[in-house]
Amino acid sequence: METVTLLQWAFDVVLGFSLLWIAWLALTSLDLFRAIVLFIAFGLLMALAWVRLDAPDVALAEAAIGAGLTGALLLAALARLESNNATKPTPEKDHQPEAHD
């Protein structure tokens, strides 16, 4: 049996709350680029959580796929969204990050 020290507890609590916090920020951020960057940070924090749960295999997969490649795909898609917007004059509404209500 592993003894859970106070330090570990503090770490877990902080990590747990940061996960929720960053996820919330990523999902409500007004700017899409910022949202994606926050999402990548979220993926890296998830990797930490996997390590903490003794799941190194998952941590590796998360860091490489969850954070790294998903992030790259998202950024590439955003770049294309914006270049499509720039080349084709579409209603202005689209260009600004949609107002969060």
Binding site: P56, D57, L60, A61, A64, I65, A72
Partner: peptide, 16 residues
């Protein structure tokens, strides 16, 4: 720890 998925995604990152 490691394996095909992790290795594959690192390879994918190199490709990207």
């Amino acid at each position: 720890p490691g394996g095909a998925f992790q290795a594959g995604s690192v390879l994918g990152a190199a490709g990207v």
